[in-house]
Amino acid sequence: MYQLLDPSRFVVFITGATSGFGAAAARRYVEAGAKVVATGRRWDRLVDLQIDLGAENCHIIQLDVQDRAAIDAAIADLPPPFANINVVLANAGLALGLQPAAETDITDWETMIATNVTGLAYTVRALLPGMIHRGGGHIVTLGSVAGDYPYPGGSVYGATKAFVKQFALNLRSDVQGKNIRVTNIEPGLTETEFSLVRFKGDEEKAAKPYSGTKAMNAEDIAETIFWSTTLPEHVNVNRLQVMATTQAFGPFDIYRED
């Protein structure tokens, strides 16, 4: 019989839990009986999440993943019921802008790199030793189809997600024999606050990618994450790319003289 793992034994550490995939995953894990450490920058959102899920199930920490010292301090100060983390969802990340490379705001590039690359590395490095010491666990990183497929205006965002993909694959090699699983979840078109952040609050621009089509939602991706972590311990999903049925692959872009 295929024996799934019992999520009620999970203690899940989630970055970027104030919206989108992170918030949906927190709800999914608590629904299944797990305990969740929900972190993010927006304290009011974290408080609302804790009220919904219950303080006995959800411990909240205001945290910016770009701050390595703050991550270390947060982990060191976890209350005992939330201290033995065995699932890490390194979800915090963002896209900013969609201008061509020569026209972009360089600070947008810096923020994406600091969050999607450096923040991810800080998170995993801080939590991994404890998981190894406790005998195992599962690290889930949030990539994107943009890590494989380029598109105009996505130069640095796509590059950061390519980093996430390769980081997760290399991490699998590093933890061989440690009973640590590593999975990179790579979503495609998903309607969350992603575009609203990318277009800096411009609701009209943010709505356009989803107009006239059926995108995935945060709950779809949360369920995918949850599934990958409840498989038997001897099964590791290395990469899982998920796209809306309405999304596919475009033709090559060929420039032609008029």
Rank of each mutant, 00 (worst) to 15 (best):
Gly143Leu: 14
Gln166Lys: 08
Pro187Ile: 04
Leu128Met: 03
Gly177Cys: 11
Val182Arg: 11
Gly147Pro: 00
Gly153Leu: 13
Thr160Lys: 06
Asn184Asp: 03
Val164Trp: 11
Tyr157Asn: 04
Leu142Ile: 13
Ala126Gln: 10
Pro150Ala: 03
Gly136Ser: 10
Lys178Cys: 09
Phe199Ser: 06
Met131His: 00
Leu189Gln: 06
Ile132Ala: 05
Ile180Ala: 01
Thr183Arg: 12
Gly154Val: 15
Leu196Arg: 14
Leu127Ile: 07
Ser155Pro: 01
Val175Phe: 10
Ser195Ala: 15
Gly130Cys: 09
Gln166Phe: 15
Val164Gln: 13
Gly147Lys: 01
Arg134Lys: 14
Ala126Asn: 11
Val140Phe: 06
Pro187Thr: 02
Leu196His: 08
Arg134Thr: 11
Phe194Trp: 11
Arg172Leu: 03
Gly154Cys: 13
Ile139Ala: 07
Ser144Asp: 11
Lys178Tyr: 03
Ser173Cys: 08
Pro152Phe: 11
Pro150Arg: 01
Phe163Gly: 08
Thr190Gly: 12
Pro129Glu: 06
Val164Cys: 10
Thr192Ala: 06
Tyr122Val: 11
Leu142Glu: 10
Lys161Phe: 07
Lys161Gln: 10
Ser173Pro: 00
Gly136Trp: 05
Val156Thr: 15
Gln176Glu: 14
Thr160Ala: 04
Phe194Gln: 00
Phe167Arg: 06
Thr141Ala: 02
Phe194Asn: 00
Ser144Pro: 03
Asp148Met: 12
Gly147Trp: 01
Gln176Ile: 05
Val156Ile: 15
Tyr157Trp: 05
Pro187Met: 03
Arg198Gly: 06
Gly147Val: 02
Ala159Ile: 07
Thr190Leu: 14
Lys178Phe: 04
Gly135Arg: 07
Ser173Asn: 15
Thr141Tyr: 09
Gly188Trp: 02
Lys161Cys: 06
Val175Gly: 09
Thr183Asp: 04
Gln176Gly: 07
Val175Trp: 13
Val182Lys: 08
Ser155Tyr: 02
Ile180Asn: 01
Thr160Trp: 05
Ala168His: 02
Leu196Asp: 03
Phe199Ile: 03
Val197Leu: 11
Lys165Arg: 15
Gly137Trp: 05
Arg134Val: 03
Phe194Asp: 00
Asp174Lys: 13
Leu189Asp: 01
Met131Arg: 00
Val164His: 08
Thr123Lys: 07
Ser144Arg: 02
Asp148Ile: 04
Ala126Val: 09
Pro187Ala: 01
Ala159Tyr: 10
Val156Met: 13
Gly153Phe: 06
Glu191Thr: 02
Gln176Ser: 12
Ala146Asp: 03
Asn170Glu: 05
